[in-house]
Nucleic acid binder design. Sequence first.
DNA 1: ACAATAACTAAACGAACGTTTAGAAAAGAT
DNA 2: ATCTTTTCTAAACGTTCGTTTAGTTATTGT
Lengths: 187, 187
Amino acid sequence: MARTKQYNETEVVEKAMNLFWKNGYETTSMQMLEKEMGINKFSIYSSFGNKHGLFLESLKLYKAKVSNVLDKLKKGNNGIEDIKQFFYDSVNSSFKSDKNKGCFLTNTYNEFSEKEDECIQKQMNSFMDNLKAIIIEKLEMDTSKNEETITKQANYLLLAKHGLAAASRVNTKEEIEDYIEMVFKNL
Amino acid sequence: MARTKQYNETEVVEKAMNLFWKNGYETTSMQMLEKEMGINKFSIYSSFGNKHGLFLESLKLYKAKVSNVLDKLKKGNNGIEDIKQFFYDSVNSSFKSDKNKGCFLTNTYNEFSEKEDECIQKQMNSFMDNLKAIIIEKLEMDTSKNEETITKQANYLLLAKHGLAAASRVNTKEEIEDYIEMVFKNL
DNA sequence: ACAATAACTAAACGAACGTTTAGAAAAGAT
DNA sequence: ATCTTTTCTAAACGTTCGTTTAGTTATTGT
């Protein structure tokens, strides 16, 4: 037939994801993406349609990457202790890479909170709702708690997780671990 | 001499501040500022130099506006209870305006955390350092606490405040008040 | 070997960005 | 009333943005 692609799509999406993760959507330009992904603008457009499509693909990849730590939480049988471990796992997977970039999903949530982007809002909400459901599930393992307490604690933990992700961009690992310990002290 | 200005500089800065507050620095264009401030680009440039100068002026105005709630915290004599009230005051002054825009300083802190802008970094750090010092001062009112506990609790409260500001952009007032109650439950 | 087809390169597109500038309008001083 | 000085209007500046397109290169099936 014809010539074959000289790049692996999943590989270049990963590079794009890291750039979006570090800089956000608006600040990341096609020029930067070209350089980072190592392929031409034409190739980006033919593979992903446009910048927005590439961003959605990056989000999808990120979700896939964090799904294992989320699965671990889902499978746990130790209630609150599982949630605490999930907090630690989230932070550690963020710190694995060279620079503090926080959580890609939370960064996106913040950047797009005032914009009207249905695709991205939907991706965000589905993830958050899923996380909330899992957290409630874990909290319900302690059968002594009533429904109101569980709702309150779930909301608290979701906000704490959100704040943790936002703060992990600018704070040290020690400060963040102290924070996690304090968060769960109150439960 | 000559013609007089047809606008009040403080008034137009306030309008600019609200726009920056809502949209962030990059997303707010000169065209939007023109419209919102009700004056021409020429007037903006002659009064504030450039977009960056106008942003700094907006930050300064915001700091002045929150200084009274910060002063209230500084003057308090009830230790942790003052800090808790400060959290409530911060949230309520954010919710006074029509839409959840969070804390302008925290939004800026997040947007500029990966950029290299000495002026803005300096403004941010001075504010954060000041807040941390005040919080430590309040915590020290409980003389039974040792230094290590105070440091840990201060870091915890700073992150909690940061997270609160970030979350207040997307969460309801009820969720946020539940969050504050939980943060201070065991301190 | 050759034709067909897809992937690549690089230049250009219009639009929007922050910023500047030339000229018209207006108000105080003489 | 006129001159001077400053504000204001509006058009244009050079860049950069995301996106497209014409033309070249390479690879596969026959």
